[in-house]
């Protein structure tokens, strides 16, 4: 059953997927032409960074395209699969599209870095390709994209759950935005509590030289302080987003009506 859902969801997104990969190559090609025109190879890098940044919206956008395909009639709910498998299939397919695109971008970045490194177009400390930073960038982009996607799934189910209440139906967007803003406010307040600050700082893993850096977005962010990553915020964040996904599945099963 789940395989059937995956296949269907991939077929729904297949054309967009190929189009996107072509777009990535086109943007990279445009970067190369730009760099050649100005005779400055390093000008390719802003284009690569732009492609990387697009990945933050690629995953949630793919997810939304897949959900949009079900909105007419919501027939997909007439299934024994249950909300969790229905949503998980979409998440897995969207993640596969995202990762394929990220790998393609990594390959383009590596080719470009190697050319730049050999030809000394840019300065790279130690003249070695920064794999660790690359992994961290990939990880941060994936975490950030997942953050938006899981929130998108949850808010999408909230939005459609409100269909059954004519009074709220007219202000559905307002309710959805209010829920998100309220949560962000609550999370920010909680992070100011000294006890929580102390708890988060109680488990760290050293990954680099001293200094403070931060990756991620909103509640999904993690920081490296004095070269160390705080582990508890990552665990709490992962658990919270799993909970949010389960809440979305519950809403889809019990509250979204056709």
């Amino acid at each position: 059953m789940f395989q059937g859902l995956l296949k269907k969801d991939f077929l729904l997104i297949k054309n967009y997927f190929w189009l996107w990969l072509i777009a990535v190559l086109a943007i990279y090609g445009a970067g190369l032409m730009f760099a050649t025109y100005y005779d400055a190879f390093a000008l390719v890098f802003p284009f690569i960074f732009m492609i990387y940044l697009f990945h933050l919206v690629l995953l949630p956008m793919t997810e939304m395209v897949l959900l949009k395909a079900e909105e007419k009639g919501q027939y997909w709910l007439h299934s024994t699969a249950g909300g969790m498998r229905l949503l998980l299939s979409k998440l897995v397919v969207a993640l596969a599209v995202f990762l394929a695109s990220l790998v393609l971008t990594d390959v383009l970045a590596l080719i470009t870095l190697n050319i730049a490194n050999v030809q000394e177009y840019i300065h790279i400390p130690g003249r070695s390709v920064p794999y660790r930073e690359g992994f961290l960038l990939n990880g941060a982009l994936t975490a950030g994209a997942l953050y938006f996607t899981v929130w998108g799934l949850f808010l999408w189910t909230v939005y459609h759950s409100l269909n059954a209440y004519p009074l709220l139906k007219k202000v559905r967007w307002g309710v959805v935005i209010a829920i998100y803003v309220a949560f962000q406010g609550l999370a920010a307040k909680m992070l100011e509590i000294p006890l929580i600050e102390k708890w988060f700082a109680s488990w760290t893993v050293r990954v680099s030289e001293p200094g403070t850096q931060a990756w991620g977005i909103g509640a999904m962010s993690f920081s490296v302080e004095n070269g160390a990553i705080q582990i508890w915020p990552i665990i709490v964040s992962v658990l919270f987003h799993v909970g949010l996904f389960l809440a979305a599945a519950w809403l889809l099963n019990r509250k979204v009506e056709v």
């Binding site: 269907k8 077929l11 729904l12 297949k14 054309n15 007419k72 009639g73 919501q74 027939y75 007439h78």
Partner: peptide, 14 residues
């Protein structure tokens, strides 16, 4: 239950 819906049900791209 096998349900024939008046809208949705089939995907245009398939």
């Amino acid at each position: 239950v096998a349900y024939l819906s008046s809208e949705g049900m089939v995907y245009p791209g398939l």
